[in-house]
């Protein structure tokens, strides 16, 4: 997959960090403000998609990125189920909010909800990024 022009590359280098930080902010404040795991995960997937579209890459690095994205998606799914099962083991109910609630309207509150947000963001972001890699960047299909 070919890269784009110099203007696009320079602008991408400038904005890419800000978009990533915005995605992390959306995830971590998911229980206080609009947003959450779904939106933040897709924004972080968008960072990597922007990088791939602007700079381009060879077939080898695409294969490697797909493998890494698959691993991260599995990690996200296992984290989410792990939180659910730890509720079952520690307190007796699947998906029980077993952590202390904290003071309302502060960052460290709401028990398991921030951790669920992080797990879902990893899962959704890695999944959508691997969909993009398989559909848009791979050269496999057009060879035959």
């Amino acid at each position: 997959m070919k890269g784009m022009s110099l203007i696009v590359k320079t602008i991408t280098n400038i904005v890419i960090g800000f978009i990533f930080i915005f995605g992390v902010y959306i995830i971590l404040h998911g229980h206080l403000t609009p947003g959450g795991g779904f939106a933040g995960g897709v924004i972080i997937a968008g960072v990597f998609i922007l990088k791939f579209l602007a700079f381009g890459s060879g077939a080898k690095s695409e294969k490697k990125s797909l493998n890494i994205a698959s691993i991260f998606e599995s990690i996200g799914g296992l984290l989410f189920i792990g939180i659910a099962i730890s509720g079952l083991l520690l307190a007796g109910t699947f998906f029980l909010n077993f952590l202390p609630k904290g003071t309302p309207l502060h960052l460290l509150s709401a028990g398991i909800i921030p951790f669920c947000n992080i797990a879902i963001s990893i899962k959704v972001g890695a999944g959508l990024f691997s969909i993009f890699l398989a559909l848009a960047a791979m050269k496999y299909v057009m060879e035959d």
Partner: peptide, 25 residues
């Protein structure tokens, strides 16, 4: 009071109806 989260939508999808989110995943 029950979950401690200020965003009611996040409370519903990740605490009250978390199995729904598991199915979506």
């Amino acid at each position: 009071p029950k979950t401690g989260g200020a965003n009611i939508v996040a409370d519903v999808i990740l605490d009250f109806r978390a199995l729904d989110t598991l199915g979506e995943a």
